[in-house]
Computed example of a mutant assay.
Amino acid sequence: MTKREIYLVVATVLVMCIPMSILAYQSKQFSNLPSSVFDWNSIKAVKTKTGEKRQFFDSPTATLDNLECHVSTLNPGETAHPPHQHPEEELTIVKEGTVEVLVNGELKKVGTGSIIFSAANQLHNIKNAGTTPATYYAIKWKSAKTTNAVKTN
């Protein structure tokens, strides 16, 4: 084997290691969410311009392309975002406070313990309609059907 052939083999091995390393990193990064416990006190609250947010998880699962859960706290009078829509469905559970939500083109006011379901591609938003902070869980999921969800608006 010549010196040139040895260099060629070494270069080929090194070049092949790069994509293999990337694939290994991605498979670890996007592994399925295992059964887990997320302690409220261990999730860092990040200040936002409207209150704060705790990101609990955002990962694929054994049956979903992605499952995401965060908890947001809105200061009195604040809106999380303008009305928007996305192809995934979303479940919002009010932990405390009073919120006003856009559902099916109507504004509805609900309080602690209420559950809001936002269907795929439906305009929705949420606003703190009370005089104290309002906190809610937001849970979204993506499946094989998500990308094929029919737009209704």
Rank of each mutant, 00 (worst) to 15 (best):
K49C: 07
A134T: 10
F56R: 04
P34L: 13
E52S: 05
P133R: 02
I126L: 12
E96H: 06
F117T: 11
K28S: 05
S143G: 08
F117P: 14
E52Y: 01
S21H: 09
G130I: 03
E88T: 13
E90T: 13
T63K: 08
V46T: 11
E5C: 01
Y25H: 10
L23S: 04
Y136T: 04
S42K: 05
Q26H: 02
E78D: 09
V101D: 04
N153Y: 15
A134P: 15
V10E: 03
Y137C: 05
N148E: 13
I115N: 09
T152V: 15
T61K: 02
V15I: 07
L91E: 05
K142T: 12
C17P: 09
G113W: 13
L107F: 13
V103T: 11
T61R: 01
D39C: 09
K28P: 01
E90D: 03
D58Q: 04
Y136C: 01
K53R: 14
V94I: 11
N32G: 07
L123D: 15
H81S: 11
S27V: 08
Y137N: 02
N32P: 10
D39H: 14
K109S: 05
A149D: 06
V99I: 15
K44P: 14
S114H: 08
Y7M: 07
V10K: 09
S59N: 14
L74W: 00
L102H: 06
I22L: 10
S42E: 07
T131E: 13
T135D: 02
K109F: 03
W40E: 12
E89S: 10
C17K: 08
L67K: 00
S27F: 06
A45R: 13
S118Q: 12
M16H: 09
I115M: 12
N121W: 11
